[in-house]
Amino acid sequence: MNQLNEAFIREVTDHQSELYSYIYMLLGNLHDARDVLQETNLVLWRKANDFEAGSNFRAWAKRCAYYECLRFRRDRKRDRHVFDDELLALLAEPSDMPDDDAEARQLALRDCLVQLPERQRDLINSRYRGDLQIKQLAKQFNKRESAIKMSLKRIRDGLQVCIEFKLRELAS
């Protein structure tokens, strides 16, 4: 493996979770996102020579991922997709925060999680670690489904507020 390859692999690996999140955002389905991420990795590798060292890897990789999402949807025309192509294009547009640091965002999220009240953290743990669905969570926490939905919504909203706050704090 030459040095260019190593540097390239590092770029690809460093951006895995960001690409996964991006693809999930476009497709709205975690399972599909994982499949498309794998395909995207292959495409990135095949096109490694097109990539100019020093240019914006993230933007280039996301562009490739976007095309892979389109291809995936074309290949599965008959499946019902969450959004139409027009919205997909709008969603895929890079956000207007050029230096948005995905890793800082991840770290901020973890900090915010630690700060959650215990019951909220339990709910998040059950939802994600146990991969429990609303009905199961309602049973486990002995609450109505509507209450669980409401709690999850509030927690996620709160996490977003907390993340933005931490990032602003970091920037200042």
Binding site: S17, Y20, L87, S95, R105, Q106, L109, L113, Y128, Q160
Partner: peptide
């Protein structure tokens, strides 16, 4: 489709969901 601020809200929320999912599962 109607607003960029809605899309930005959506992107952020979906990112939180994907990251929580990765952090709590065994990742990629």
């Amino acid at each position: 489709k109607e607003s960029e601020s809605a899309r930005e809200r959506y992107r952020r929320q979906m990112d939180i969901h994907a990251q929580l999912h990765l952090d709590h599962s065994e990742g990629l």
